[in-house]
Design a protein around this nucleic acid. Structure first.
Lengths: 246, 246
DNA sequence: CGGTTAATTGACCCACTTCAAGCGCGGTGG
DNA sequence: CCACCGCGCTTGAAGTGGGTCAATTAACCG
């Protein structure tokens, strides 16, 4: 529960700097808004639906997922979060959580008290717009997932998700040239895709047979990026990778 | 293209006041940020994917939809907008549109120049958080659509969407006690649900036979609200209907 | 009265689900 | 040291929800 040091925020600043520049003062404001560091074990929930957290949580190491459950026990994962991502920055204006967040792997996070975020919005309009932007990226990804789920086949949808995670990992500085961490089980992967575990497995086998990628030991290796992009009809426009004055 | 008068913003202020209070000064700031009024005919696009609009658009009358298309020509609607909704408030921080917006019916809108919104973020932190909140409501709805699409049957998903639109229409002051405008064709409805037109039709017939609702001439009449809620597993928490200081 | 668009129906097909079983591996306890 | 267990992955077989293709009807409109 110590105060985190600067290197902790590498993925976050890397991910932001793809989209906009922060001034030294703004960076300092982020650092001083940071609260305490925490550890969660795989399977633990960081936040639960219905809660009113007094802080937002930034992932520093590991992977987390947003999810909701339905009456028959089914679970839908609505977002995957890697270091540099806030799992619930939206809880600052929304205040009540409309979904839960769970730890996919053991992970390390830093909390940002809403009080500190409030002070940022009162003092740093540009930084506020950048934080706003981050929540809008989530929204853009949500829309893309709807499109792939609604109008593409399972094979295309799966290829698309592998593409998305690759690019996002690159932006956060977490990818090697052709590989990135992807520590899900197939059951969790199926929950993210909205597929049964059996069909997830078979779809994955088909995708592997195309030779576009490999996935073992929690790492994805991109073998044929142009092919994978094509299979997933992946166009990264929705990730807003352009550096613009926000 | 005249400057709009105050009554134009009734649904917007109604919808906002469900979630928070605005001061007179903040209301005035909204009014003075408003640009010009415009009319779009059904089928016209208000905004197109890839565009960099210099303003955001508030619906004043009629209905619009966000959508994306995929390679085989399929179309997925990712959001339905009624009076009081911004169709692309997110284009203010994002700047580049990652989807298009089309007019479902003839409709009337008011544009808000990004320059004016920028001035709001520089001057009114609380109002900024309220605008931020509005974009987060979109995100929450997106997540819910993912869940219903991913883990519910077509029947449940359809019932859920009817519930959602009812509550949203009520919040904007657009519903009578048990009915609200729903001017989609079945093809458009199917595009929103991610279903084929044939299956949309058959699912609708089944839903009608439950006696939970009627839908004709562009209006939905809720006949048995508890039943409809149950059929759609509808829980409005995600719409954040609580008035809180944001 | 022909032309167009929306709603509907029938028939067939396939993508995906469900149920059930088996396999491999690491962990644990006796 | 080994037997057992649980979990993640894989496979087979059978069922079904939803898609596709094709045609018909109904309403509207100039």
């Amino acid at each position: 529960m110590a105060k985190p040091d600067l290197s902790t925020f590498g993925p976050f600043f890397s991910m932001v700097s793809v989209r906009d520049d922060l001034s030294d003062e703004e960076r300092a404001a982020i650092l001083s808004a940071a609260g305490t560091a925490h550890i969660f074990a795989a399977g633990e929930d960081l936040v639960t639906q219905g809660e009113r957290p007094s802080f937002s949580t930034l992932v520093v190491a590991g992977m987390t997922a947003r999810y909701s459950t339905v009456e028959d026990g089914g679970r839908q994962i609505t977002g995957l979060h890697i270091p540099g991502d806030f799992v619930d920055l939206h809880s600052f204006p929304l205040q009540v959580m409309d979904h839960s967040v769970t730890a996919i792997t053991d992970c390390e996070v830093v909390t940002f008290p809403h009080k500190s975020l409030m002070r940022i919005t009162e003092t740093y309009p540009h930084l506020t717009r950048v934080l706003w932007l981050l929540t809008l990226l989530d929204g853009a990804i949500h829309r893309q997932w709807m499109v792939t789920k609604g109008r593409l086949t399972a094979d295309e949808q799966m290829a698309h998700l592998f593409c998305e995670q690759f690019v996002r990992a690159q932006m956060a500085g977490l990818a090697r040239s052709q590989s990135y961490p992807f520590p899900l089980t197939q059951a969790q992967f199926g929950d993210a895709l909205g597929l049964s575990i059996v069909h997830t497995n078979r779809t994955l086998q088909r995708l592997r047979r195309t030779g576009a990628l490999e996935w073992e030991d929690g790492f994805v290796e991109i073998v044929d990026w142009p092919l994978l992009r094509e299979l997933g009809q992946f166009d990264p426009t929705y990730l807003h990778l352009e550096k613009l004055r926000r």
